[in-house]
Design a protein around this nucleic acid. Structure first.
Lengths: 159, 159
DNA sequence: TAAGATTGAGTACTCAATCTTG
DNA sequence: CAAGATTGAGTACTCAATCTTA
């Protein structure tokens, strides 16, 4: 043993210091409670909630737009759209200009659900940020923005 | 329209300001690259990698210990242990004191894989933190620690 | 051929139920 | 019955292949 203190050798790997792991743990810890809300109240998945949130914020748009904005996989969006449509929360209209494209928008029911969940999300978020305080709340936003905008860190980027 | 500026009404829900979403986006952005490493090199899942990392750090321990330390679901741990065992990276020994318990430990192969992945993870993490700089790197650690330790934020906590 | 979107196969996750030992 | 761990059913995700229209 080289170290007499309790401090872990910094050249040995420690999951507890691995940034992707720490981010995942924080994400899961903070997501869990609200996930239960949209799941239990409306039977929605996280992807469905995100698709709805985008349509609620931006209004009518295509599946491709949602993919581009929120970086959700197109197959996840496709299935979420189908589920929201089946639940009468969303409608699609084939574009006249380009019949490959479908314009998605929330129905009245969908907008009602979004208004409800949006309010709950707002207070859920406020609860989290209240515990952090305004300074740390702003700090985390800035730091996460930096981390999210990192170009992919891999040896072989295939895209 | 009450607002003449481009600033979004703070009483309307906006996914881009929702902390759980921002944490998830950052987690996914930073995890993606390293996930490809253990998947492509060793066919491992994230849970398998985490179980291995705990055994690599702490040495022999039970599945329940791993659950307690890393907050991974027991069924995920169970299946990851099975997979690592099948891949000859892990062995289990039924405890003499309590035959319900199995002591898990990495095999020589498993330790070799952990050493390799641990080094790669270390440099991957260093790459992320280098972009942040030392100050923000320390900040994010502190903030994530706070967020992860929040007691569950839900109306009805059933546990 | 390319772009928007969907489908299918294989994999991983979730939650309740079960098995075994204490 | 309680605790450690596994199993099964249903759900969601990933990646490649496909379908339709441009």
């Amino acid at each position: 043993m080289q170290n007499s203190s309790m401090v872990k050798d910094e050249h040995e790997f420690d999951l507890e210091r691995f940034l992707p792991y720490l981010l995942n743990q924080a994400a899961e810890a903070t997501s869990h409670g609200f996930h239960a809300v949209y799941r239990d109240r409306y039977g929605m998945t996280r992807t469905q909630w995100r698709v709805m949130a985008n349509l609620g914020k931006f209004g009518a748009m295509t599946a491709r737009d949602i993919c581009a904005i929120s970086h959700i996989e197109k197959t996840k969006v496709s299935r979420a759209v189908f589920a929201l449509e089946s639940a009468k929360m969303l409608t699609r209209i084939t574009s006249d200009q380009d019949r490959r494209v479908e314009i998605l928008s929330l129905t009245e029911i969908g907008r009602g659900v979004f208004t409800n969940l949006g309010q709950l999300a707002l207070s859920y978020d406020a609860g989290l940020r209240q515990r952090l305080g305004p300074k740390k709340s702003a700090q985390i936003d800035a730091l996460l923005k930096i981390l999210t905008s990192f170009p992919k860190v891999t040896s072989n980027d295939k895209e």
